[in-house]
């Protein structure tokens, strides 16, 4: 009898919750209602994206002992492995699309032909955890200016070398305004050493004002475009899985 009463009280407590969960889940699976749930993203972008405030920069003693990596396994193609073994000789970052002068850069050019920027910023994963690291690299805006963005351009797409289990490549995108943020960095060093492979070697994007998935790793091509959509999907690998394109929250 005692067991019966406990079960009964348990059901009284959990059934209303289970009812809510199951009702909400069926609404979640309804395409019309799901579109409704996407509405706040536009509002959030309009409010939080209205300016370009700087993310807080931390002190050296705040740096996390290990910069946790998330996402896919490092790129597995033979070319990437060959580059990683010979100090990234052969790797070039390509910048093309709606630019006056499409160019490509090797790591030495990125390290020496541009001003080196260093920032100690917090990396917030969409899962909820945070790590702090010191990133050095070139401002994304400096590279884009070097190629000359054409007036009809609106977005910058980052094509990466890592793939999910099914072979789909990672990619991300920023608006031109977000790409002009002074802390939007193409980083080649983490904590004073070349970016480790697990953290996106040889070059990764770092956008400290948005969640970690916007900071694409293993970047090999930057494409400047007029619009997202079509073959560019919703503007990113995780965006195509239902995550927000604007990852400021």
């Amino acid at each position: 009898m005692k067991y019966g009463r406990r079960t009964f009280l348990g059901l009284v407590a959990t059934l209303p919750l289970a009812g809510c969960a199951s009702l909400a889940t069926s609404l979640n699976d309804h395409p019309g209602f799901h579109r409704f749930l996407l509405l706040p993203e536009t509002l959030d972008l309009a409010i939080l994206g209205a300016g370009q405030p700087l993310a807080r920069e931390y002190r050296p003693q705040d740096i996390s002992p290990d910069f946790r990596a998330n996402g896919f396994d490092p790129p597995s193609d033979p070319e990437y492995r060959r580059w990683s073994r010979n100090g990234w000789r052969g790797y070039r970052l390509v910048v093309d699309g709606l630019v006056r002068l499409p160019r490509s850069y090797d790591l030495a050019m990125l390290r020496h032909a541009f001003i080196r920027r260093t920032q100690i910023t917090r990396h917030d994963c969409v899962e909820g955890w945070s790590v702090i690291g010191e990133w050095s690299g070139v401002r994304l805006a400096d590279v884009l200016n070097d190629c000359g963005v054409r007036p009809e351009a609106r977005y910058v797409v980052f094509h990466c070398m890592d793939t999910d289990g099914g072979g789909t490549y990672y990619y991300e995108s920023l608006s031109l305004k977000q790409a002009a943020h002074p802390q939007a960095l193409l980083a080649y060093d983490l904590n004073g050493k070349p970016v480790p492979i697990k953290n996106g070697a040889p070059l990764r994007l770092k956008v400290p004002t948005q969640l970690g998935y916007k900071s694409a790793k293993y970047v090999k091509r930057i494409e400047v475009v007029a619009a997202l959509g079509g073959p560019l999907g919703r503007g990113g690998y995780w965006e195509d899985q239902g995550y927000e394109w604007y990852a400021g929250i």
């Binding site: 959990t14 809510c20 979640n28 996407l38 969409v126």
Partner: peptide, 24 residues
């Protein structure tokens, strides 16, 4: 457990969508 979460199955992307909609 599933009976306490929205959606019931594991889905961070949609959980966030619900959370930020009803936060407003």
């Amino acid at each position: 457990p599933a009976w306490a979460t929205i959606p019931a199955y594991q889905d961070l992307a949609d959980g966030r969508r619900w959370h930020f909609f009803f936060a407003w």
